[in-house]
């Protein structure tokens, strides 16, 4: 099914807006049907919406969310639906009418349903209890902090960097001075495809033979990236590299607005220099295969590769003010 893209990762905003949108559609359809004199009984509308939400959570999101989270959404949506069906005394009566009819067995069909329910409910409860008593060894859920607080200073190749004040020495304008606005104007376009702004201008194309200064450093950073980093972070910096599938935690996706776009450049410098092993405990330093890049790259190379990551994704580093 390539035409239907699952909600990848766990993206609450996309999920909630899709759910809200579809429920709005249901409400409109319900209203239209009512106008046409074909109103859906309140009981079935309530149960239907609740089931719809459950099925949506189970099948629309990938990787699947755990049962406990689904249960929370199920309870919250159940409460919402309950409030909706019990808005007034009349509505409440209307809602519970089908249930009472079954309990009373007012017709042959209702009596059959009642008999079915009397058998199914204990079996279902027993079965549910059995599966929950059965020793099961599911994958444990371990929550990890992706962006832990950085230290005030970091020492790389014998030099101490104060993260609050240090600047990327390669983020410079034509005059050779630190200039974020100048370099921000030369990154790729933040749109589908994220392409460089002009392939025939040495100011924008790192591969132009006449490229100098900032844009030349971007190319040098890119060379380092494609000799060292893409194996995990991917050719498009989206965390889907050659070996991403083998590792856990998975490599960071720099094209996601929640990673480098949210961070100061010096934070990225610290993370790259110290790697997984340099994380505080909440970042699971024991599990990350991210190398401490100070073992492989010089300080200059690290600054260049950080700058390339911003150039290629079309994001600006966050500033302190």
């Amino acid at each position: 099914m390539t035409w239907l893209k699952l909600v990848e990762g766990y993206m609450p905003m996309q999920m909630i807006s899709e759910l809200a949108g579809s429920i709005l559609v249901f409400a409109l359809v319900n209203w239209a049907l009512k106008r046409a004199g074909l109103g859906v009984p309140k009981f079935w509308a309530g149960v239907g919406v609740w089931l719809y939400i459950q099925l949506y959570l189970q099948y629309r999101i990938y990787p699947p969310i755990p049962f406990s989270v689904r249960a929370i959404y199920g309870t919250v949506s159940g409460c919402g639906i309950f409030m909706w069906v019990s808005g007034s005394e009349g509505e409440w009566q209307e809602f519970k009418r089908p249930i009472l009819n079954v309990m009373d067995g007012i017709s042959g069909v209702h009596r059959a349903v009642r008999l079915g329910a009397v058998i199914v409910i204990p079996v279902a409860f027993g079965g549910f209890a059995y599966t929950s008593f059965l020793p099961s060894f599911a994958e444990p859920i371990e929550l990890r902090t992706v962006h832990p607080a950085p230290p005030a200073t970091t020492k790389v190749h014998g030099k101490t960097f104060v993260l609050q004040v240090v600047e990327n020495p390669y983020r410079v304008n034509a005059a050779g001075n630190y200039d974020q606005a100048y370099t921000d104007a030369r990154i790729v376009e933040q749109a589908m495809g994220r392409l460089m702004k002009d392939v025939n201008d040495a100011d924008y194309n790192p591969w132009d033979p006449d490229a100098e200064g900032y844009i030349k450093y971007v190319r040098e950073g890119g060379e380092i990236f494609f000799q060292n980093c893409h194996f995990c972070h991917g050719d498009n910096l989206n965390g889907r590299g050659l070996w991403a599938y083998a590792f856990n935690p998975i490599p960071a996706n720099f094209t996601d607005a929640g990673t480098i776009a949210q961070l100061q450049e010096t934070f990225v410098f610290w993370r790259v220099s110290k790697g997984g092993i340099g994380l505080p405990g909440e970042g699971f330093p024991w599990a990350s295969v991210m190398p401490p890049w100070e073992q492989h790259l010089t300080v200059d190379e690290i600054w260049k590769v950080v700058m390339f990551e911003y150039w290629h994704t079309g994001y600006y580093p966050r500033t302190w003010d």
Partner: peptide, 27 residues
């Protein structure tokens, strides 16, 4: 990556008893 080895213990008898009690309770 990290994996977990779990040596699964035999299923205890309570696994069968409690659900049956719950089903009876529901009836």
């Amino acid at each position: 990556a990290f994996y977990y080895l779990v040596m699964e213990p035999p299923i205890p008898t309570t696994t069968y008893i409690y659900p049956a009690l719950i089903a009876v309770g529901m009836v």
